[in-house]
Computed example of a mutant assay.
Amino acid sequence: MNKLTTLERRGMAAISTASGKMLIVAADQRNGMKAVMHDAPDGPGSITAEQLSDAKVDLVRYLGNAAPAILLDPEVALPRVADEGVLARDTALVVGLDASGFDKVDGLQFTNLVPGMSPRKVRDLGGDVAKMLWYMRPDRQDADSRVADGIRELVTACSEEGLLLIVEILVYRLEDESEEDYAAAFPGLVADSARLSVLCGAKVLKLQYPGSAEASAAVTEAAAGVPWAVLSAGVDHETFIKQVEIAVANGASGAMAGRSLWKDSLAVSADVREQLLTERALPRLHELEAVVEGALVSL
């Protein structure tokens, strides 16, 4: 297990429930959030930067402030939600470092930092914890690969700043890989990506649901004591609740939920958005917390 420093332990406590389970509302999406706003019943032909910023403010005000932590981007949401006093005192701020999109080199996908972002900049924006996304194919990439170097370098830089880094890994299908072959390989890819990330120094992981109880247990074993949280990956709330329940029962340490909570609540109208976030998204968050805490059995 990669041990947390004292400051990193404080960051871990800030993003966790009273019982120590991670629970974070993910709202760092940019293009993905614009897409669901566009699909909202009152959505215009295109979403402006101001409309997106307003939606993120409301996500914090009516949903994120009810969670231990919220994940936000440094391009649209920040520093506005902090400077305007929208973010509650008791809700930790996780700052996403990854830029939208990815580069493709020799069939592999690589993310980049948002220009100008660094561990010091996370602190300047009021962040308590940082998050960085890497795409990974552990069957094609090893401890000497570009992605491994990137994880090691950022984990070290964040640790030197006294900042906990959440390492998010997404595995993906290769261009010459059939859907059937990818589906068969998927559970092992998630587990192997956890193993490689931990080898590179990761201290907290954000991972895809690997597909079953057995696969979740395999991920827990691969993580070697490093806590991992399940990401919602755009599935509906009911599906995600079941995934989290299975994962937590097999060693996962919590959940980071985005679209499963709010994708059908981001109306363009501020009044409608407030109503939907309060009456639809917020109860989902409470249900998710109960599952993470082991107080609700949905299966």
Rank of each mutant, 00 (worst) to 15 (best):
L4G: 11
T5Q: 01
T6A: 15
L7K: 13
L7I: 13
G11H: 00
G11A: 07
A13Q: 14
A13D: 14
S19A: 11
S19P: 09
K21D: 13
I24K: 07
I24R: 01
A26H: 01
A26L: 07
Q29H: 03
A40F: 07
A40M: 03
S46I: 12
Q51H: 05
K56Y: 10
Y62L: 09
L72G: 09
D73L: 01
V76E: 06
P79S: 05
A82D: 14
D83P: 08
G85V: 01
L87V: 09
A88W: 10
A92L: 01
F102A: 04
G107M: 02
G107H: 08
L108A: 06
Q109C: 15
F110Y: 11
M117F: 06
M117A: 05
K121C: 12
D128L: 07
V129P: 00
V129L: 00
K131P: 00
W134V: 13
Y135N: 07
R140H: 12
R140I: 10
A148H: 02
D149L: 13
I151V: 10
R152H: 04
T156A: 15
S159K: 13
L163H: 06
L164F: 10
I166C: 07
V171N: 06
V171C: 02
V171D: 04
Y172S: 02
Y172M: 04
E179Q: 13
Y182E: 08
Y182V: 05
A183D: 14
A185L: 08
V190F: 02
S197Y: 11
L199M: 15
V204A: 13
V204W: 08
L207D: 09
A213E: 03
A215F: 00
S216R: 04
T220R: 06
A223Q: 04
A223K: 00
A223N: 02
A223L: 05
A224V: 08
G225P: 00
V226M: 03
V226C: 05
W228D: 03
S232M: 07
V235A: 11
V235W: 02
H237G: 11
T239K: 06
K242S: 13
Q243P: 05
I246E: 12
N250K: 01
G251E: 03
A255F: 03
R259W: 07
S260E: 04
L266C: 12
A270R: 14
D271L: 12
E274H: 14
E274C: 14
Q275G: 05
E279D: 13
E279A: 09
R280H: 14
R280E: 15
R280I: 15
A281N: 00
L288C: 01
V292S: 04
G294T: 04
A295Y: 15
S298I: 14
